[in-house]
Structures are given as C-alpha cells and as structure tokens.
Design a protein around this nucleic acid. Structure first.
Ligand SMILES: [Mn+2]
Ligand SMILES: [Mn+2]
Ligand SMILES: [Zn+2]
Ligand SMILES: [Zn+2]
Lengths: 141, 141
DNA sequence: TTACAAATGAAAATCAGTTTCATTTATATT
DNA sequence: AATATAAATGAAACTGATTTTCATTTGTAA
C-alpha cells in the first residue's frame, strides 16, 4: 500500500480501486497535472474510473495537504505532490509549464507588518512567481 | 476624450460608443472588476452594449497594458487599471472571506536571486496571505 | 458621400468543473 | 462467511464563465 493510500485509509477514507489508480498516477508524476491529464492517464489502465471520481479524489488530497494547486494562468486547475517543507513555492514557466520549487521567501517581516496594521492573525501564504524558463525565453509565443 | 480613449484611438482602434462606456467604468473604478460587474455597470446606462463587447474591449486593454489581471482565487477574471500600482495583493480572512488589499511585498531581491539561479525571465508574481480577521480570530474553523 | 474593414451582439458552442441520484462497494460487525 | 450501512461511484444533466459564429451595423479615411 502506497504512502498516500495509507494516509487516506488512516483518515477514514475507503480505499477503492479507483482511488488507488489515481493516487498511483499522482504519486509517480514529477510534473503538475490537470484533472483531465490525470483522467486520461488513469483511464488508460483503468477504464472503469470516471472523471467525477478524479475531481473528488483531488479534492480530498488537497484537503489533506498531500497535493497543492499550481496556478499556471490557464483555465484548467493543476496539481502537484506537496513537498515536505512547510514553505513551498513555485516559479512557473508560462511557456512550457515547467515548475521550479523554492522555499525561501522572506515574507516574515511583511506578515508581521500586515498583522500589526490590520489586526489579522496570519496563518499561511501562497506565493507564485511567473516567467519564462531559459528554453522558452527568446522563442516568441 | 478620456486618456484611455485617446490611446485606443492612437493605436488604430475605432472609438465606438460601446468602448467609450466600458472605458468610462474601468477608468473610474478604484476596485478590481470582473467582466460581469463591468457589464452590469455599463448596461445600466447603455443597454445597447453586449457582454461580448465587454470581453473584447478588456482583451484590447490587457494587450495594450492599460489594465492587468488580479488573481483572486475565484472563477471569474478580475481586472484593474494598470497605472495605479504594479503590485496588487490580497490578505484573505479564511473565516469570513474578507479581503484586504496591499501593494508592498519587497520581492525584488528574491526575484533577482531566482532569475540568477534558474535563468528564468521573471514577469510577475502572485502573492496571497491567508489568516483570520480581528472579528474571526478566536472563533473556530 | 462612399467604401469597407472593423466592430457589434444575439445565439450557439465550448469547456472545465459541479450536482444529482440511482446503484455499487469497502469495511466494520455479527 | 453473511450482513448492515454509510461512503463512494459514474452517467447524465447542469452550471457559469468565456468564446465563437455570422449576419448586420458603423466609424473613419478617402
Ligand atoms: Mn518553459
Ligand atoms: Mn483587491
Ligand atoms: Zn514561504
Ligand atoms: Zn474574517
């Protein structure tokens, strides 16, 4: 039983063949994946898995913090396995979708300032930087 | 003739009543607006303006760099006049959904460092901070 | 005026994602 | 193993924002 499956089980979710299949695809991919891409991949080996189940499984994985969304600018949602660090940010290439992780962001001072000025209690932040990777820079879109 | 209208004209776009109306709404708003919100506002005074024209005009304004998109996390696109600030970020209350805007984020050094290390050309960043507003702090999830 | 490419909008299409609901199934309990 | 049952599933219908199509209108230059 995979790591993800074990966590799902432990959280009280049933371990269905459909979920196993989806978890397998998500866990093995190094790239960020759209629900459609996951569906296509899963469907190849397990034609009994429906699109709705892909969406629902992704929803659970996000809720449990096992995957996170990558905002790529397109109209589809994109998800990627969450790394273990608590700071996990993305540098996304708007040309090819390539994603570079980074962890340092030095937002502590900004957060303290905002907290002081607004009275908010700060829990977390989401930071994404968009640009073009070396291969996509130069070649026009 | 407004500033925006003049630029449009100068770029070879025809100055239609519909575009004047849309430009007026966008130029006067201090907030970021969705196409639907702009349509509603414009439609009040100029019922002859259709939704499609709102979308098409916004597309032109983005292309000319006169407005920019604000990523709010919702499903609608949101746009705001470009002139005002380069940076537009959100502090979001996870309790009640209240949103506070802020502009300073001091990510220049981080962006330079990432650019140097990865070879990426940096275009923009999206920063969202989540927490609980004064009214919601103390309450449960 | 005239000419005509540009612009418009009603309607239809698209497209990702969500909801509904009748049916199936994983798992805990006998 | 048999049973009970809430959870999970998927086909189909729906949603809501955006896009496309295309017949008609219009701003602008000549
Ligand atoms: Mn790239
Ligand atoms: Mn805002
Ligand atoms: Zn961070
Ligand atoms: Zn709040």
């Amino acid at each position: 039983m995979s790591k993800l499956a074990a966590i799902l089980r432990q959280q009280g979710y049933k371990l269905t063949p459909q979920r196993r299949a989806i978890l397998g695809v998500v866990a093995l991919s190094q790239e960020h994946l759209s629900p459609a891409a996951i569906y296509t991949e899963v469907h190849r080996k397990h034609p009994e898995v429906g699109r709705v189940t892909v969406y629902r499984t992704l929803e659970i994985l996000v809720r449990l913090g096992l995957i996170c969304e990558v905002h790529t600018g397109g109209k589809e949602h994109n998800f990627i396995l969450r790394a273990r660090e608590d700071h996990h940010h993305h540098l996304v290439c708007s040309g090819c979708g390539r994603v570079v992780d980074f962890a340092s962001c030095h937002l502590e001072r900004l957060e303290r300032k905002l907290s002081r000025e607004t009275g908010f209690t700060i829990d977390e932040h989401m930071l994404e930087i968009h640009g073009r990777c070396p291969q996509c820079t130069g070649g026009e879109k």
